[in-house]
Amino acid sequence: MARSYLFVPGNVPRMLQHAEVFEADALIFDLEDAVSLEEKDEARQLVRSFLQTHPPSQPAYVRVNADALARDFSILDGLPIHGVVLPKASIQTLASLREQLDGEEWSVLALVETPSAFLELSDLARDPGVDGLILGGVDLRAALHAHPTESGIELLYARSRLLMAARAYGIEAIDTPYAESDDAGFETDLKRSVALGFDAKCAIHPNQVPPLNAAFTPSQERIREARRIVERHEQTGEVRFSLDGRMVDRPVLEEAKQLLERAKRYKALKKEADDAD
């Protein structure tokens, strides 16, 4: 589980050697779109050499090329990585990936970025090898003949559909990165990701990571509220009660527990003493 997945272009030494310090919960070393065709072989060697020498402290993924899986996997052997990101995910590319994985216990994040992938989304999400779905907004927009809008209306269905599938099968829902460079647009897009219910979002620039982490970390106000709900439940054993005029039942209680768990994972739980400040 992570809030932020930072894409790191595979053929830029300067970016690789500093990637670890930008506070991303997970890193995705990119052999695909960030690397031109002529540089694929160089990027493979560079990513391999880097991960062998300086394994980052956070989970590392490699985004492979769907059309060059064998060559990409030839350099992944023995690397300290957590998983791979499969672009243009489909039942077919997933099957090819499984062949390459050859029993390796790497996590797979499926990048959902084609209309056909949405038609098979349940099967992708149900696959026991797939731990999360990432929305690939840029490619999907192009395939749909859609344009980026401020309201994000053009991706609303895709986002919601992906969330349904992820939630139905209990895997992670990771939103598409914001591809423009304006800060205001990024903030709006980020708020939308959180409101829809995504667990995390991709970042394509290190400067996107701190606001992204903050947005996916439960606020102190919500933590306090969740804590009161859980404490009341623990003290009384009740699963249905009223708190400050609000009805609490099992789903609300479950939501509060989840929120506290997330807060704990992201070190947002302060001691009671700090709360008093």
Partner: peptide
């Protein structure tokens, strides 16, 4: 000003090419 991992990777890629 490349670090070791870079010099090594560039050299290996060059040898393969």
């Amino acid at each position: 000003g490349a670090l070791d991992f870079t010099i090594r990777a560039r050299l290996i890629a060059a040898i393969e090419r």
